[in-house]
Amino acid sequence: LELTLRVGDKTWHFKDVDEEFVRHLEELLKRGAHEREIEEIIREWLR
């Protein structure tokens, strides 16, 4: 999967994204996660 995600003024483009990561992001967005929380999840995933 490829994913382009825009949060606030930042845009990330990922290739070979894990479906579990996408589901986790979807859940965060559904519950109205704040920009900082989403950025933290992305940084963790990139490690």
Rank of each mutant, 00 (worst) to 15 (best):
E40W: 08
E37W: 06
R6F: 04
R36D: 15
R23P: 01
E20P: 15
K30E: 12
R6N: 15
D16V: 13
E39P: 01
L46E: 14
E27D: 15
H13A: 04
K30S: 13
E19T: 12
E19V: 15
D18L: 01
F14A: 00
D16Y: 14
L46W: 06
L5P: 00
E2N: 09
R31T: 13
W12S: 00
G8D: 02
R23I: 09
T4G: 02
L1H: 15
E20G: 15
K10R: 09
T11D: 08
L25Q: 00
E44W: 03
H13K: 08
E19I: 15
E2V: 06
G8I: 01
D9V: 03
E44T: 03
G32M: 03
K10L: 07
E26V: 10
F14G: 00
D18C: 03
H24C: 03
E37F: 07
W45L: 06
W12G: 00
K15L: 08
E27M: 10
F14Q: 00
T4H: 09
L46K: 05
K10V: 12
I42K: 00
K10F: 10
R23G: 08
R31A: 14
L46A: 06
L1P: 12
V17P: 07
K10A: 07
T4I: 13
L25C: 10
L25P: 00
A33H: 10
V17Y: 06
L28G: 03
E35S: 08
R36L: 13
W45H: 14
L46G: 03
E26Q: 13
I41L: 11
E20N: 14
L3S: 03
D16E: 08
I42P: 00
I38P: 01
I41K: 11
E26R: 11
E40T: 09
D18W: 02
E39A: 06
V7T: 03
I38Q: 02
G32L: 03
E37N: 02
V17H: 11
E19D: 07
I38R: 01
A33F: 09
E19P: 11
F14D: 00
D9W: 02
E40F: 09
E35T: 10
L46I: 13
R36M: 14
H24K: 12
E19S: 14
R6I: 15
W45N: 03
T11Q: 06
R31V: 11
V7L: 12
L29H: 05
E39F: 06
I38S: 01
L25I: 10
L25R: 00
V17Q: 11
I41C: 05
D18V: 02
H24I: 12
I42H: 08
V7S: 02
H34F: 04
V22A: 04
G32S: 05
H13R: 07
R23W: 08
K10N: 10
I41M: 14
E40S: 12
I38H: 01
D9F: 03
E26P: 00
K30D: 10
F14L: 14
L3H: 06
H13N: 06
E44D: 12
E27W: 08
E39T: 10
R36N: 14
R47C: 05
I41W: 13
H34P: 15
R47T: 14
F14C: 01
F21V: 04
R43H: 14
K30N: 10
D18A: 09
E44Q: 09
A33Y: 14
L3E: 02
H34D: 14
L28Y: 05
R31D: 13
L29N: 04
I41R: 09
E37I: 07
L3Y: 10
E44C: 07
R43M: 14
R6H: 15
L5R: 00
D9G: 08
E44K: 07
V17D: 12
H13I: 11
H24A: 09
G8Q: 02
I41Y: 15
L5M: 05
V7K: 01
E39V: 08
I42Y: 10
L25E: 00
V22Y: 07
R23E: 07
R6E: 14
L25Y: 02
T4S: 10
I42L: 06
I41P: 00
H34V: 08
R6P: 04
L5V: 15
E35G: 06
A33E: 07
V17M: 05
E19R: 15
E20D: 14
H34W: 05
F14Y: 01
V7I: 11
L28M: 12
T11M: 10
V17L: 04
T11H: 10
F21P: 01
R36G: 13
I41H: 10
E20Y: 12
D9T: 07
A33M: 11
H34K: 13
I38G: 00
V7N: 02
H24L: 13
R23A: 10
E27G: 10
R23S: 10
W12L: 03
L28S: 07
R43E: 14
E2W: 07
G8N: 08
L5T: 01
R31I: 10
V22K: 05
E37C: 09
V17C: 04
K30H: 13
E40A: 12
V7P: 00
G32Y: 04
H24S: 14
R31K: 14
